[in-house]
């Protein structure tokens, strides 16, 4: 029963590993960016699994109901911000990728390094 409570943290750790491995091992730029989104999504899971409380519901207070147990609103606010930070970084990185493709003709990092070493 005890490991069930920690399962969220294990999935968080595994997703971090998958994301970081994808960033480091794959040289294709867009594949690394997808790895980056997985890396950031793992952090969202860590924060949101902190806000769950047994028997609680989403923190929207209904008038009629008394003694309602609510989930913790703070991590949800932080993650709302973090999701939009993630999409902004991704959009900027994709714009740079398009410019790199036009400037270098390829989006494989190792080929780009060779082209840079020649000039």
């Amino acid at each position: 029963m005890e490991v069930l409570g920690l399962y969220n943290y294990f999935v968080f750790a595994v997703l971090l590993m998958v994301g970081l491995y994808c960033i480091l091992a794959r040289t294709n730029i867009i594949k690394s960016l997808i790895g980056l989104t997985i890396f950031q999504a793992a952090v969202f899971l860590l924060y949101i699994s902190m806000d769950k409380i047994d028997g609680g519901t989403a923190p929207i207070i209904l008038e009629g109901v008394e003694d309602q147990v609510f989930a913790n609103p703070l991590p949800q606010v932080l993650i709302l911000t973090a999701i939009v930070v993630g999409i902004s970084t991704t959009a900027l990185a994709l714009a740079v990728t398009v410019r790199i493709k036009e400037a270098y003709g390829t989006i494989e990092e190792d080929k780009i390094q060779e082209m840079d070493r020649e000039t």
Binding site: F44, I48, S49, D51, K52, I53, G56, T57, A58, P59, I60, A71, P75, Q76, I79, L80, I83, V84
Partner: peptide, 10 residues
């Protein structure tokens, strides 16, 4: 995990 706003945003 009871985070309706975040689910909609994600």
């Amino acid at each position: 995990l009871d985070a309706a706003d975040v689910a909609l945003t994600e």
